[in-house]
């Protein structure tokens, strides 16, 4: 997306929000249309359950409708929507029994006393063209992300999947910029390790590639 287009989108969005705040229901329909995909995708990636993601999307659309007058434009409208979405997901996740998180530290890279790489590191990056993806590969990736602890997962989804800026994520989550960076880095290290186990085999001479 070009910068100009982003700017135009932002202006259209701001105009829609103003129209809706002034009582224009058609503007609300457009906002709902623009946002339901984002709300659903984030909820689904966080909870991995269609029913829950649907419920959260409904709930958020309803909150947007009822609470639009409380939106003051101090942050971007999208940040406001993301925050409401995450709160709705957290409420739902808290009410469910969850499996204990595995410790992220165990999967961080290990180094020798002098700080040098200890493990054998294979470069599987060349064997990951998405055109070669099987459903199995996609499942492996989804499962790996599901295993991330909540704190790291939400930062990873907003930064690397939704591609929001560090600053924006820090605003949405009320975290400092260094905290966002550190959680993102830990999430990437964890996922890299998880995916390595799979791709090293996938890209081995025995495999297709």
């Amino acid at each position: 997306m070009t910068f100009t287009q982003q700017k135009e989108d932002k202006e259209i969005e701001e105009a829609l929000v103003k129209d809706f705040q002034a009582g224009n229901l058609d503007a609300y329909d457009k906002i709902a249309e623009l946002y339901q995909q984002k709300i659903y995708a984030l909820s689904f990636n966080l909870m991995r359950n269609q029913m829950d993601a649907q419920d959260v999307t409904q709930e958020v659309l309803l909150i947007l409708f009822r609470k639009i007058h409380t939106f003051q434009g101090k942050s971007a409208f999208s940040s406001w929507v993301y925050r409401i979405t995450l709160n709705a997901c957290y409420m739902r996740m808290r009410s469910k029994k969850k499996e204990p998180n595995i410790s992220i530290d165990e999967l961080l890279p290990s180094f020798s006393g002098a700080g040098f790489q200890q493990e054998k590191i294979r470069d599987w990056s060349k064997s990951t063209e998405s055109s070669l993806f099987t459903n199995e590969t996609r499942e492996v990736i989804k499962k790996a992300v599901d295993l991330l602890p909540e704190k790291e997962k939400v930062v990873f989804l907003l930064r690397d999947v939704e591609e929001l800026s560090t600053e924006k994520v820090s605003g949405i989550l009320d975290l400092t910029v260094p905290a966002v960076k550190s959680r993102l880095h830990r999430a990437r290290l964890f996922l890299r390790k998880k995916l390595s186990g799979y791709f090293e085999e996938y890209g081995s001479p025995k495999g297709k590639i």
């Binding site: 993601a53 294979r122 992300v145």
Partner: peptide
Amino acid sequence: CIAFLNTYKSTSRLCRETLHQIEIPDEV
């Protein structure tokens, strides 16, 4: 470390490509 860098970058890309495909199912 080069191998690490390359796979670190691929990790983000792979996850994005996979998770970005989440579409709202028709019934939803």
